[in-house]
Amino acid sequence: MKYELLFALANKGILLSTSFFIILILIVGIGFSQIGESSEKTLLAIIWIAISLSSLLSIKTMFQEDFDDGTLDLYILSNTSIETIIFIKSIVHWITTNLPIIILIPLISFPLGITIYHSILICFVMLLSTPALSFISTIGAALTLGEKGGNLLISIFILPTFLPIIIFGMKISLLITNSTYDIMAHLILFALSLICIAITPFITSLIIKIHYT
């Protein structure tokens, strides 16, 4: 785990994803401001879209680098199960791409008209739902292993599967800004997230094993 973090940090994924996130928010925000539609609703939508796009950014390197330099061979031959390694890799991916963005959200949403209290609640929702994005993305990373220019392919495979998370996340965020509360929506979102965390390491490891044989 320690070394996976080190590897991820050395790749400068944090800088990449956070700057991508900020730039995306700024550009789309400015675009919307021209048509006078820049309400907090559109801002929320932009945040959710931006966070799902940026979690796909550095996903390609997740297995590709290990595959190229032979570390993945080593993982497969070692006694540690490949599922555990995928789980650790997904957590590290989440820590290095989504977590910094979530920390940023109160900072950028306050000047744009969402109250601190609401943005912290939204952050909390994101904290619980975005791990699913990282975990789902590993499937795409495993599928495009050894494929050149697989990044676009990953987006095509994986973005549609983000939909449930985005739909429920968006719904809950809207409810929060209206100061209402819907326990069912919360439960469904967190259940989705937990299911993804529980299942995807097994799917991904299966794909990697098939890739090898």
Binding site: D69, G70, D73, L74, N79
Partner: peptide
């Protein structure tokens, strides 16, 4: 996996 040890072209 328990008995064999493989080192390939790449140094990992």
């Amino acid at each position: 996996y328990n008995n064999f040890f493989y080192i390939g072209h790449s140094n990992s």
